[in-house]
């Protein structure tokens, strides 16, 4: 099938234009995501960066401009007080530490639950494997919010779990689960489980069965084979999965807001409060920038470690 002449002409014209400014087909392929990242990531990031260095004001928008041109004098105001304020008030530090702790613990439990699942799926016969993978992805077809709300129904005082426990006679009084850190952990582990399973599955399914047999043949019991062969060889999947869970979990807002109690202090919530309750956009931006830096450091360390590993075994 040949494309309609008008479309072909247009495409040709576009390609010619692109070539004139030094872009070949290869360059174009790279340019498109680059433009996307600049427009939707870099520019917003710079805007937030700018905000974090401005002063809060009762105005619309609620901050003072960074640069002013008055009577031929250009004055630039860089206000670092927002950052100093973050360091001053222990609330923010606590929120960061608490967020990192909740994210780390949740990541650990997600890994613990996801690994055997991914392993089973990777070892299942072909036809069943596709079905199982489908089931892992299936929750994405309903709204995330809806699924978190469903957990409220499970965890609340007269919810499914408490009713069942009382009926079984395990407890007399309903357990307080909703609005606790426990509920937040459940919510995060539940929500992010597929993000852990999928990269783990991807590395485990590639794991050659011969390695396991060779290990057994050389005298390793199954548990030893797992520790010395399976686990090290699936490490890239473990790292990828942990990053995919840990990073968004640190900044998670919806889950602690819906399932967490008033004392669940997470950075996402602090951010929300600064922006919408306090209307202090500069401090909120500073919180966001610091969070980004805090997250960037472990990512870069991990990347370096991975690069070194790959460099040793090209």
């Amino acid at each position: 099938m040949t494309p309609p002449p008008l479309l072909a002409q247009g495409l040709q014209g576009f390609l010619n234009g692109a070539r004139r400014i030094g872009l070949t087909g290869r360059g174009l392929v790279i340019a498109i995501p680059l433009v996307w990242l600049i427009v939707f990531f870099l520019i917003p990031f710079l805007v937030v960066g700018k905000l974090s260095l401005s002063e809060a004001a009762i105005a619309l928008p609620p901050y003072s401009p960074l640069m002013e041109w008055i009577d031929g004098v250009l004055s630039i105001h860089l206000n670092f007080n927002n950052f100093l304020f973050l360091a001053d008030d222990s609330l923010y530090l606590n929120a960061y530490v608490e967020s990192a702790k909740i994210a780390a613990v949740s990541t650990f439990f997600t890994l613990l639950i996801a690994y055997p699942m991914a392993y089973m799926i990777a070892r299942a016969p072909d036809h069943r494997r596709h079905l199982l993978l489908m089931l892992v992805v299936l929750p994405f077809w309903t709204s995330f919010l809806l699924r978190v709300y469903a957990w409220i129904g499970f965890l609340k005082g007269n919810g499914v779990i408490n009713t069942l426990l009382i009926w079984l006679g395990i407890t007399q009084e309903p357990l307080r689960m909703l609005q606790t850190d426990f509920a937040v952990y459940i919510g995060i582990v539940y929500t992010y489980l597929p993000f852990m399973i999928l990269p783990l599955y991807a590395t485990l399914v590639k794991l050659d069965k011969d390695y396991l047999e060779a290990s057994a043949d050389l005298g390793a019991r199954p548990a030893m084979t797992f520790l010395t062969v399976t686990l090290p060889l699936s490490l890239p999947g473990v790292i990828a999965g942990c990053m995919l869970v840990f990073i968004p979990a640190v900044g998670e807002y919806v889950i602690p807001a819906l399932l967490g109690g008033p004392d669940t202090l997470m950075i996402g919530r602090v951010l929300w409060n600064e922006f919408f309750a306090n209307r202090d956009w500069p401090v909120a931006s500073a919180v966001a920038i610091v969070m980004l830096v805090v997250l960037l450091v472990p990512i870069m360390v991990l990347r370096r470690a991975q690069a070194a590993e790959e460099g040793a075994t090209p």
Partner: peptide
């Protein structure tokens, strides 16, 4: 093993 199955 035919594939040698050396631990990479």
């Amino acid at each position: 093993f035919q594939s040698y199955a050396l631990f990479p």
